[in-house]
């Protein structure tokens, strides 16, 4: 074999230890009890793609992207995405406000749920959320915004 080029990504073990808990938390928020299988699938996919990772790729955003893909695949099996209707932008949530509304995210359509949780639960910038959703940045904003509106409506109804 001789010498190999210096790896451009950290040893997988280190990447895995850094992100495994956070990714499980994220998937629990999206999938509840089904999170564990999706979590394993996420890290197996990461391992399959790991040697092809580009140098300098933001690893946290990357693993959230994989987790989102796995979760959306899983959710779409059970539930069709509701077409996004009127997309008037909702005001940004405060993180505290999100904590109050978070328990309601289970009722959101999958893409909106992922966008809202990534934005308010994990502070990902919209550019990275767009990556995770495989959409444009505008669409990511719209999904989060529409999700927030829906959350507020549900919250109003519950009061």
């Amino acid at each position: 074999m001789g010498t190999m080029a210096t790896p451009q990504v950290p040893p997988f073990e280190r990447f895995y230890l850094t992100h495994r808990d956070e990714v499980l938390g994220y998937l629990r928020r999206l999938l509840g009890a089904r999170a564990e299988d999706a979590w394993q699938e996420t890290f197996l996919r990461a391992l399959r793609a790991y040697t092809r990772l580009e140098h300098g790729r933001h690893l946290r955003a990357w693993v959230f992207t994989i987790a989102t893909n796995v979760a959306l695949d899983e959710l779409r099996v059970k539930q069709r995405t509701v077409p996004q209707s009127e997309l008037e932008p909702a005001a940004e949530l405060q993180r505290d406000a999100f904590r109050e509304l978070e328990h309601l995210t289970g009722d959101l359509p999958p893409t909106e749920r992922a966008a809202v949780v990534l934005r308010y639960g994990y502070d990902l910038p919209y550019a990275q959320i767009a990556d995770a959703l495989g959409s444009s940045e505008e669409a990511a904003r719209a999904a989060a915004s529409s999700g927030v509106r829906r959350l507020r409506r549900t919250h109003e109804r519950e009061r």
Binding site: M4, T6, P7, P10, P11, F12, E13, Y16, L47, T51
Partner: peptide, 11 residues
Amino acid sequence: LARGFGARVLR
């Protein structure tokens, strides 16, 4: 280990 055998190092 990563330098010698590849980045997919796992305990």
